[in-house]
Amino acid sequence: ADYTLTISSWAPPTHGINAKMWPKFVEMVEEATDGQVTAELKLGIAPPPAQMDLIMDGAADASIIFHGYQPGRFVTTKLIELPGYEGSAEDASVAYWRAYDQHLKAADEHRGVKVIALHTHGPAQLHSSAPVTTLDEVSGLKVRIPGGVGGDVGAALGATGIQVPAPKVYETLASKAADGVVMPLESRKGFKLTEVAQNVYEMPGGLYRGSFAFIMNEDTFADLPPELQTALEENVFGEPLSREIGKIWDEIDATGREATEAAEGNAINAATDADMEKFSAIAEDIRGKVIAEVDATGVDAQAAYDMIKSEMSSN
């Protein structure tokens, strides 16, 4: 290859992000450029919140960021995290990219880097060591939940927040410093939750969805010959990549569900209709608050929300 991009990434080596998503990215890039551009993965160069700085200054060419790790910096990304959407991670990721392209981009929150994909993990559910079967039981639990919308949901349910990075979740649950954790189903396998949080409380559409972006250094992109730039823009970056990565989130969620069904002593408890109704009231409160917050950044939050909602249900 004429151009080899350096990818900086941070999840465990075996996690879907590194085992599947980046390889998919490389595959798509190579295919679109006839093998002229490729990429190699480097793990552990810096912790997650440092990734955007690293990409901005060219310490690596591409990376993945989780918007919740940088409170204050990202507000419009909270729209996709809202509970209440129904659909797969693939549908959500595609809708997310379209809403970004039409509305959210204007807030310019990723200034300094080139956004090449936006995606969300599957619906996040509550995983706990003691069984939780009703929404009321969440109150008083110590729960690891990321900031942003997830934090708002946790607070509304009366849970106490515990702050630990995702790779430390296993230890935190094993040591009972937390009673539970809110993560997508893929983490049952990716973070070995089947061993330390045997019970899942499943709410259709999830308690929230985490928001991620793939980002790229602007100079690196500008240095590529125009025809390669066009090839990447048309065939990889934006909607195509977002869709493929969303698909992988769905795929690894399915693996997590299988692992749970196969693991002894594990159970998935579905929310009752009454609880779903109760939760949709909570979700509506949070939605109102987040839409107001996003509105304040100058984008038309309601229009963006409606767009995501209809894109997702049209699939």
């Binding site: 160069i45 912790p47 440092a50 690293l54 200054d57 060219g58 310490a59 630990v164």
Partner: peptide, 21 residues
Amino acid sequence: RGLKAAMSMVGRQITDTAQDY
């Protein structure tokens, strides 16, 4: 550009390592 990249990595290491929980 290489030096800028390196300094950025160094700057983040300085601030992040001291704040590693």
